[in-house]
Nucleic acid binder design. Sequence first.
DNA 1: GCTGATGCGTC
DNA 2: GTCGGAC
DNA 3: GTCCGACGACGCATCAGC
Length: 588
Amino acid sequence: MLYKKQNAHFFLFLMLFSEFSFLCEALEKTPSRLSKKKLLRAFFLLHAPEAVTEAIHFLTFYFFHEQQAVLFQLDEIQMVKIIAEYTEKDIDSVRKSIKHEMSGDIGAYYSVHGKSNLQSPLFQDIFREICEFGAIEGENSQETRKKKILSLLDKVSKEDARYLLRLFVGTFRIGVSDKTILEVIFEIFLVRYGERYKDIDKKKFEQIYGVFPNLGKIVYFVLTNQIEKLLSVEPKIGMAVQSQTAEVFFKNNALLLDFSKYSYVIQPKYDGFRLQAHVTKEQEIFLFSRNQILVNHLFPTVAIALKKYALQNSFYGVIDGEVIGFDRLNNFYLTFQDTAKEKREKKKKTDKKESIELQYIIFDLLVFKEVNLMNETYQKRVQIIETFQEGEQIKHVNSIPVFNIKEIEEQHNLCIKNKYEGLMIKDLAAPYEAGKRTRTWLKYKKIQKDSLEDTIDVVILGYTLSKGMRSKRQMIGSLLVGVYDEATQHYVTVAQVGSGGNQVLWNLLYENLYAITVSSPLENVFISKAHIPDYFVTPKIVVSVKADLVSLSKDHTAGVSLRFPRLLTIRPDKNEKESTDIRKFLSE
DNA sequence: GCTGATGCGTC
DNA sequence: GTCGGAC
DNA sequence: GTCCGACGACGCATCAGC
């Protein structure tokens, strides 16, 4: 009996890959989040902690090779070729089948048409092999990747390959993400340790995850009874904290603000890149992106300037802020697009304009020396920042107190006039909530104010089929839209629109577009290679869309394009030539 | 060595 | 980034 | 209210193929 039990435990430690893919399949089929959580919990409790850790890493795309995140760099067309070759089918028919019958899901295609294969390898072996993708680079690397995929396909059943292939193309579509997994881990904790740690709630778990964003390790601590270790997690200089983000502010949700109870400040909203800077006691600099990726190599000048700043202020700790290009000569901030050009990878600096620098605008302080400030009020954190002296490229955000909506409107007008993206409204009493989108930070962008003014009418030139879950509700994934150019009598494209619009609208559009679908575009319709849709239509139907701004474009044939386009409604009252001349909105 | 297509990561 | 759908 | 995954433009790096 004892032998049998030990044996059973041994067996469970050696989890099969098929067990993992069964879990994925069950999760995918279950619509209810509650049921998904039940499935996950049962799975986590059944398997050994080491196996669960790796399973969670798999589910959250967390693969490392020599401390580097693994990138698959797999060309989707290449993937189709591999599958076609392996299953001895014609490439074009495979491609078409994936698009039309499988909602763009290469994994689903393979689970039906793949090679039958009864083997089921150990999960940990597959996991290890996946990590090895991180070592592949350079010339002929696509060939090496191809071989690796072929060898993996040889090892797993066609059903199991479904999630493997989805991993490579970057989507699981099982309706489970980190938040759900964290909840499950918390529930396991509650059952096991709830009695002993009565004051530990879900919020505490979220806080831990916020400063220690590694679900695999968190579950390992819980499953191996290392609760004290887990609960003592603190933000650590050198380890990225999850960024706090803001909710959108609308005129009609201004009720979120309670001026009688709370104090608020506004700050200009800079249209650059979020940057979290860590300075160690030894003056070592770590720069992290919004998604906790180390980006020192992208902003070398910021790192140098920060070092000076730290030295000057005897500072070490963790800072949050925004990095944005600034033209010193002409005294203006660069557009987002231009700031992006200032990022440096391996590129040489030859084209660099002398008067342009990257500024780092600091707006929060999470750790100062040995002290964790995340649970202090924002007021206190800002006060500490203001005791520091600004540096050459290192600036402090300007906070202005506001006492009513009218003042917010005034400040908003001012910010727009000064070419900021808008403004941020921050609650001075709030702590820093790592990884949360909170109402203690609100973003108020230009578009939210002048929504009517910025509505744009465009004509539909083509459409592309929807993928994944969306394909269960509607045929269309996105519309290729453009404008009519009077001067040249051409239709030129300005955007693809796939966000916005409800199911009813999209299905109505499909009915209308189906009837005017043509096999090739008319002669006066100009579409670049980068935007060839699945189907072309005769220019006829006009829709109104909303966008944040108009920017210069290389790929859209209008020469300009819409940033963050979303669908609003059909305009049956307009004909194909009555589109908005959006060039006049170009922001520079 | 150049070009075009594509992935990755930012917003 | 925006957005709608499902819970 | 929260979570999830559809969908967008764009710049840079990378690599296949010429």
